[in-house]
């Protein structure tokens, strides 16, 4: 326990960034405590995300990875700390939050598509925040939106499945549709919450490859939660190790020693033993 406190201090150097210079996302001393049962899900996590960076948040389940991602776009409300997007703080004020969320794509473990709708409509729903509400009463989109949606589907290799219902696709294909939906937002950053946990390894690699390509080719930063060490080593440019809500590692995969891995995963075994 005392070990990570020491490493944590190094992380708190992250301060409010200057406008438009520096990191895309800046996470400063984020903490979340659930009122019921005084459960601490996250405590004092800080780090910056550079443009086009592919960061893997690594940790066992229950480490607070999901809470961390959800605090970034405020699907969960942090009880402590601040998040900056391009130097602007993300608050819970409705209009501002909408603007922020538009720039943050999100991909989920269960894909979270509207399965009864076509692939195209699912991807187009990534464009909703750009358009007035009345249009959605008629399921109407602009020519530009449609072009963007098709382009995003091409990018994930699903240009030929545009009009199929989402529930006719395989798991891997559904996740690629979800990635296309996130891309259609034209985001600065994509949050991927265990995007491959429901997929078999071969398909998982394919999905991670798409995410990696997105970060490299489009300069979109990707923050990806994973619990599999080998995937993290293979795809991450940088790994943030999380255990029991605390950041206990932050560095390139080459510095992720067995010793550190033991700390990330071992501590849980200790805690479970209690």
């Amino acid at each position: 326990m005392n070990m990570n406190v020491e490493i944590d201090h190094r992380a708190t150097k992250a301060t409010a960034p200057e406008l438009n210079a520096g990191p895309v996302v800046s996470i400063v001393n984020i903490g979340k405590t659930y009122a019921r049962g005084n459960l601490v899900a996250l405590s004092d996590v800080s780090f910056d995300v550079g443009r086009g960076e592919f960061i893997v948040i690594l940790g066992p389940s229950g480490a607070g990875k999901s809470t961390l991602l959800r605090c970034i776009n405020r699907l969960a409300e942090p009880t402590k700390g601040r998040i900056y997007l391009n130097g602007k703080e993300i608050t819970d004020r409705r209009r501002e939050l909408r603007d922020a969320r538009r720039q943050i794509g999100m991909v989920f473990q269960q894909f979270n598509l509207v399965t009864r709708l076509s692939v195209l409509l699912n991807v187009l729903s990534g464009r909703l925040s750009y358009r007035p509400t009345w249009r959605s009463f008629f399921y109407s989109f602009t020519r530009e939106d449609r072009a963007i949606a098709l382009e995003c589907l091409e990018m994930v290799g699903l240009g030929h499945k545009v009009f199929q219902r989402a529930d006719t696709l395989s798991g891997g294909e559904q996740q690629r549709v979800a990635i296309a939906r996130a891309l259609a937002q034209r985001p600065n950053v994509i949050l991927a919450d265990e995007p491959v946990a429901s997929l078999d390894p071969k398909i998982a690699r394919q999905v991670l490859k798409y995410l990696k390509e997105i970060s490299q080719r489009l300069g979109i930063s990707v923050i990806c939660n994973l619990h599999q060490v080998d995937f993290a080593r293979e795809y991450a440019e940088r790994i943030v190790g999380l255990c029991q809500g605390q950041k206990i590692f932050d560095g390139p995969p080459s510095e992720l020693t067995d010793d550190i891995l033991n700390k990330i995963y071992g501590m849980r075994a200790e805690a479970d033993g209690d």
């Binding site: 776009n73 699907l75 939050l97 909408r98 603007d99 922020a100 969320r101 538009r102 943050i104 794509g105 999100m106 989920f108 269960q110 979270n112 598509l113 509207v114 399965t115 009864r116 709708l117 409509l121 729903s125 990534g126 909703l128 925040s129 509400t133 959605s136 009463f137 399921y139 979800a178 939906r181 996130a182 937002q185």
Partner: peptide, 23 residues
């Protein structure tokens, strides 16, 4: 889950209803 996904894109309440609830 799809409702949450749409909220995460920045879609507003009515848009979420139209695209994730009604279907």
């Amino acid at each position: 889950k799809p409702l949450e996904a749409l909220r995460a894109t920045g879609a507003n309440h009515l848009q979420t209803i139209m695209f994730a609830v009604l279907p």
